[in-house]
């Protein structure tokens, strides 16, 4: 049973680690403002696909790790990720029947909310940051979503069939 569970959790943990690596990877300055919120995207995907197993609790823990990795206030990413994953889980039934274009639009809204929460907390806590390029990750994340969604679905079913 426990081996079965480990096998089930493996793809989630592996993809989250990869997302974390992509988040802290150094990028050229020109591309950096458009680095997608990998961790948020992957968390949205898993919360959307398996909302009973992966919901706000794991999102919060991942958010804390993200806070340490990015050197932000402890709890900032945790809060934003938690809210976004809550909305995903809450509305995942509606989202499942969406055509892909509408689903992308929803992901756009979620990512925008995520960035807005981060931005807003920065404002409240008086951490200086200009506002404009906050939209870079939202746009790139939304454009990436359909590809990522298909790719992740592939991983999900392949691993599940084997397990």
């Amino acid at each position: 049973m426990s081996r079965d569970r480990a096998a089930r959790h493996f793809p989630v943990i592996a993809t989250l680690i990869v997302a974390m690596a992509l988040t802290i990877m150094p990028l050229p300055r020109a591309v950096d403002p458009f680095r997608p919120d990998w961790v948020a995207l992957i968390m949205i995907f898993w919360a959307f696909s398996l909302p009973r197993s992966y919901s706000v609790g794991i999102a919060w823990v991942i958010g804390i790790v993200l806070d340490v990795a990015q050197g932000t206030l402890l709890g900032q990413h945790a809060l934003a990720l938690c809210v976004v994953v809550f909305l995903t889980v809450r509305f995942h039934l509606q989202m499942r029947v969406f055509p892909w274009l509408q689903l992308s639009a929803t992901v756009f809204a979620l990512l925008a909310l995520y960035q807005f929460l981060l931005f807003w907390i920065n404002g409240v806590a008086n951490v200086a940051a200009p506002a404009v390029a906050y939209w870079g990750p939202v746009v790139s994340g939304t454009l990436l979503w359909p590809l990522l969604f298909n790719f992740m679905n592939g991983i999900r079913y392949r691993v599940q069939l084997r397990a």
Partner: peptide
């Protein structure tokens, strides 16, 4: 996956409560 599809996942127990508690915890941490 099968469990998700069989039951009604819109009623995930105490989801709102858990989310709220974690959000408050984040605020406290920050």
């Amino acid at each position: 996956a099968s469990r998700d599809n069989s039951s009604n996942p819109a009623r995930i127990p105490a989801l709102g409560f858990r989310a709220l508690a974690l959000v408050l915890l984040s605020v406290l941490l920050m």
